[in-house]
Every structure is written in C-alpha cells, then in structure tokens.
Design a protein around this nucleic acid. Structure first.
Length: 462
RNA sequence: GGCGACGUAGCCAAGGGGUCAAAGGCGGAGGUCUGCAAAAUCUCUACUCAAGGGUUCAAAUCCCUUCGUCGCCUCCA
C-alpha cells in the first residue's frame, strides 16, 4: 500500500519513495534543553513518533536520529541575544552543563511517559562540534562563506535557490525586519556558521576552530549530525512549522552548499498547539504547561496522546481542558471496554481484514490519526467480531497509536474485596438493601466499585 | 507592513468536486435493564459546512469578496 505524505517542499501529498528499499532514514529536530519541554513541544515528538510507527507498521526499517540542542541558540531581541543555555544557568544558579544534563533527562522522561519510541541515535550538539567545524570547512572551500566582524557567515546570495522550502521572497525592501539586523551581514538572510565575537565575553561554551575560539551557529548542528549518522542525503526531516523559514531553510542552504546536491527528500512539519485566547504556547512567553502539570492534575500521559491523535498533525490545535477531559473520558471507556474483552477471550487470529485495511489506509494517508481512531471505535462497537478478533485488531492498531491499549489488564481483585462482594450478594438476595448499600460503600472506600448486571455483578478498580 | 493557514453540531474533530440529508470522540436527552446507584445497551442530538457572490450537470469541497481567528517574518516544536 502506498504511503502518502505531505511534503512541505512541494506543498503536496506525495507517494513516499525511500532512498533504500525497505528502509527510512529519518531525522527529527529535537529540543533545546534550557527548560522543560511543554506539551506543545511534545506534540512535535508525538507526531514524529506516529510517523515512525506508521513506517514500522508498513514493515520498514527505521533509522531515526534526533538531536539535542545544547548550545548556540540566541534568545530573541528582548534580552539582546543572550545564549539560552547561559540564561537558564544564570536563572537557576547552575552551570550550563548542569542545565543541559537536567533538562535532557527531563525531556527523555517525558518521551518515555508518552510511549514515544526512543530514536536509534540521539546526539548532542556539544559532542559534535568537531563535525560542525569540518562541515563549515567544506562550505568555506566551496566558496559560500565570508568572514566579518570575527564571525563566519553563510553567504545566501551564492545559492540561487535559497529559501525554496519556505518560498521566501528575497526582496529586501519587503523584508521589513522588526529587529535591527547584524551590521556585518552583507544580506539580511545571511546567518552565522561560527561565532568568535560576541557581546558576552564570558560565554561558557567555547571551542577552538580554524577561525578562532568560539562556538557554532545554531543551524549547523543539524546538518552536521544528520549527515554523520544518516549520510549526505536522507529521506525525511521533521520539525515544527516554525522551523520552515529560518532553521530548515538555512540547514538546506548550508547542506546543499557543502554537499553539492539535494539533501533531503521529504520535509514534514507539525502545526502548533495553541493555548488560551488562541496564543501559541511558548517557553519565552512563559505560558506553558508541562506533561508533569497534566499528571499532577490527574491526567494520564495517554490521555494527552489520545487528545493529540484526535486531530491531524498539520492542523493547529487549540488546547482546552474541556477537550482534554473529553479525551480522558474516551480513554477510560476504551480501557474498560478492552479489559472486558480480555476477560472473555484472548486475541485470536481471525481478524477482519477489511477493518485492518481501513486503519492501514488512514495512517498511510499522511497520518490521518483521527480517521484511524474512528476505525478503532468501529472495532470496539462491532457486532460482527468476536472478542478475540477485536483484541487482535486493537493490538495491531496500538502498534501505531501507542495508547497502551495492548497492555490494558483486567483488574485483579483482592480476596478481601471478593469476600465483601459475596456478602453483598447474599444481602441482596435477602433483600437487606441497607446492608447491601453499606457493603457497597465499604468496597468503594477500599478503592473498588461494584457494578450489578443482569446475572450478578462486576468489580472494578476505581 | 509582507507571507501563510484556518473558520464543519454544545465542545474536540475527520472529510476537501458527485458514494455527504457530513466520520469518530466528548457532552446532552430519552428508552431498556434495575431495590437504589452505577455500568451496560439502544435511539436521538449539523436539511447543513463563517457570510455573500461566482464556476459547474453537480460545491462543505474550486474561484472572488467580506468578516473572524491564528501562525510566521525574532530564539522557538
């Protein structure tokens, strides 16, 4: 079955053709680790994970690389371009290295809690400065750089198709930038590959280079590390939609300048999660919610994953707790339903190929997870399928959805609770309603609820 | 100021020229079951896709205008 993906480069859904048959080389722009990831950031990684799982579902081998940015990001104009790491360190009275370590661990923990498959390779920018320097040398040798004010710049005017991803109109008059541009730049689109001069002389992260002691520009890390682990061209590059005009545009520029050929075949971008009065969630705006916040509020990470899967990754999603509650209720029903199926039967082989096909088509069509969830509900509610067939299908679906549905256990009920339930059954038989209700309350206090049905009762953990 | 996206039921959200009198979930209403409660289950919940024009045999889907919302142009997922 074809896999169709929306390629930002063409702005169209294209049939996926791998460079190597049966294999996908995938690069995901990771997080800048100067603070906790917020749930908006995490949307991008759940998207990338769903993409990867879709390929695995299609029997592809996936070589997945994700970077961790731990150097070189300048903050915006408001605080005059201080390095984010440095700012984080000062804020918390720690060294930059401690900051990086702490937030990287926190990030990985979030990924795990969200059942995001860990990449084949994760790589830190600071551990690949040598690779970046080598790459800058290549770009320099190919004639795409100039040095001004102590920094090495990429000369965008040398690249005829600069800005092709974002379809930038390179008309300076129309680019009325809101920030004062770097006076050393020859062209407003040029960007720094290597810094040696900087307003803050006490920058903690510095390395020697042919151009002097300093640190790399932001964009070079992704180009250098992706080519190191995936080769000089690879299949897919993912990231948030905000990366299109600057970061990815510049990655393409420097990579194609260095390698002399097209670099990445498919660019996939996820849209933003927005919050409140339709405002994007962002660390610099300080309006962010972390996964831990949600957990503390009593949500399960899977509730959040379900919530995201309910919307297409290329649509902006306005976060509300009302909607998240809806997802949580849906998850609860799913888990209860599956636990009941498991009580009656274990997965059997004779699954309905039509529903599997429907599901497969949905995910292969540019990751249409909302439609995939609709198929899941169709299976749950089906009157034609046996419990075993349903479970078998759900197990398959969960390879992609990763909602932990395959792992749902039917509750084991302690003997004490069973005993109380039996007593209550007898009380009911005796029509001693008062006693029966007392026993129900007691069971409830112990964390279980008892549900009467036609033939008897069921006990469920609350 | 420039560029881009979006506007589908109370809420979230698929669909993106005919199979649409528009998936699915949440919520809500009613019925069945029942000592009560809960659960379960069944039925109902958009004659309509922001508004107005246009193209077409045919439009939620294409084009134009207006209104509204958001994103990017600056570190950002």
């Amino acid at each position: 079955m074809d896999i169709r993906l929306n390629n930002t480069m063409s702005r169209e859904k294209e049939v996926f053709k791998p460079l190597t048959a049966g294999e996908v080389k995938l690069y995901t722009c990771g997080l800048t680790v100067y603070n906790y990831a917020h749930i908006g950031n995490l949307r991008a990684y759940i998207f990338a994970d769903t993409l990867k799982r879709m390929f695995l579902f299609n029997d592809y081998k996936v070589n997945h690389v994700m970077n961790i940015t731990d150097v070189g990001h300048l903050t915006g104009d408001e605080d005059e371009g201080e390095d984010k790491m440095e700012a984080g360190a000062r804020r918390e009275g720690k060294t930059v290295w401690e900051i990086v370590d702490f937030y990287t661990k926190a990030f990985f923990k979030d990924l795990e809690r969200l059942r995001i498959l860990f990449p084949t390779t994760t790589c830190r920018a600071t551990e690949h400065v040598g690779d970046m320097i080598e790459m800058i040398k290549k770009i320099e040798a190919n004639g795409y750089t100039y040095i001004a004010g102590g920094n090495v710049y990429f000369d965008t005017s040398k690249l005829p198709d600069y800005g092709k991803l974002a379809r930038l109109q390179l008309d300076e008059d129309r680019m009325r930038s809101r920030v004062e541009s770097d006076p050393y730049k020859r062209n407003p689109f040029d960007f720094v590959l290597w810094f040696t001069r900087y307003k803050y002389t006490d920058h903690a992260m510095q390395w020697d280079s042919p151009w002097g002691r300093g640190f790399p520009g932001w964009h070079i890390e992704c180009s250098a590390m992706s080519s190191k682990y995936l080769g000089e061209s690879f299949d897919i590059h993912t990231g948030g939609i905000d990366h299109i005009p600057i970061h990815h545009t510049n990655e393409i520029a420097q990579s194609e300048a260095a390698f002399g050929h097209e670099w990445v075949n498919y660019w996939l971008h996820s849209e933003f999660l927005v919050i409140g009065e339709g405002e994007k969630m962002s660390k610099s705006l300080g309006n962010f919610i972390t996964l831990q916040t949600l957990i503390d509020m009593g949500y399960d990470p899977m509730d959040y994953r379900y919530y995201l899967l309910g919307a297409h990754y290329r649509k902006q999603l306005a976060f509300t707790f009302e909607a998240l509650d809806g997802a949580r209720n849906a998850m609860k029903r799913l888990k209860i339903g599956i636990a009941e199926l498991k009580e009656s039967q274990s997965p059997s082989a004779f699954a309905d190929p039509q529903l599997l096909e429907e599901f497969h088509e949905a995910i292969n069509d540019d990751l249409n997870t909302p439609r995939a969830l609709a198929v899941l509900w169709k299976v749950i509610d089906s009157e034609d399928l046996s419990a075993g067939e349903k479970l078998a299908l759900i197990e398959q679906f969960d390879r992609v959805l990763a909602l932990g549905l395959a792992e749902v256990e039917s509750d084991t009920i302690p003997g004490e609770i069973e005993e109380l339930a039996l007593q209550r059954k007898q009380a009911r038989k005796d029509r001693n309603w008062k006693r029966a209700d007392e026993l129900r309350d007691l069971i409830s206090e112990k964390g279980y609820e008892i549900l009467d049905d036609r033939d008897g009762y069921k006990i469920r953990k609350k």
